[in-house]
Amino acid sequence: MAKTSTKNQWKAWLYLLPTLVLLGVFTVWPIINTVRMSLLEGYNGLAMIRGETFEFGFANFVDVATYAGFINCLGNTLLLCVITVPISTMLALLIAVALNSIKFIRKGMQTIFFLPYVTNSIAIGMVFMAMFSMVGGSATNAPDSVGIINNIIKAFGGKPINWVNGKISGYDPSERWANMAVLIIYIVWNALPFKILVLLGGLQGVNKQYYDAAKIDGTSRFRTFWRITVPLLSPMIAYVVITGFIGGFKEYSSVVGIFGNNMGPAHTNFRTNMNTMVGYIYDSLKDNNQGQASAAALILFAIIFVVTMINLYVSKKKVHY
């Protein structure tokens, strides 16, 4: 027995070898190194090559936290999370419940609602960009080209809105909200399929007898929804909300999809653009500013961690398992 177990030990590690090597290089070392770089003041790849040395300290964190661009990114990310997660969850819940209570063409509907998931978020982001786009439209000259949404607005007698990329003389703060709105619509659209899938799965797992019992008691649909469906589905809802927040904090490619690499309308600067936390990290990397990128990554991790913990705590109180 002992003999075989030692033999197995050796074998087991062999099976794990590729995993451990790769994880060591690309996961474990990065964790250590990221912490290290974040603590080396002003760490910079180019400077490193030149042979400069760096002092230990929290300067990177301080720099990042006080840098207006980062604050803007953090604000954008938080805003996106806080707005998109509740909207998409609620909408997904409604759709899932509706899907669950129909019979005819249900499978087809399910497939339709899953479609946004199997898309390239950059590519479809470009479609949204096209739909919301407007070119021209400054105070002096009329828009040359407008997207379908602005055309619809115009058809109803409204003024085209500079959702994505209009050329505008001077900065108009209201455009920021228009930009944000497009982003929110796209993120919600993109987030729906997963949430519907999970919630529908949850709904199908709910014992049908609860609904039969409610029916016999003459419970109204509204009340059934709030008093039975939502509580019984609360574990699934919690899961969807938590993953929604995590995903929200990592939002990046949807912004790229709509606004392109500079993460915002072409003429805007860091104070007004739509950049997110992850976008900031990549930007810092491209600038060879690894110290700040590391610090930002750690801050992101800390935020995700804290938010997840809060979510878990709240759901522990509210969720009925």
């Binding site: 007898q209 039969d212 039975i228 019984l232 009925h320």
Partner: peptide, 11 residues
Amino acid sequence: LVFQNYALYPH
């Protein structure tokens, strides 16, 4: 109606 599994609302 009393169900076989009672169908009491667990929450």
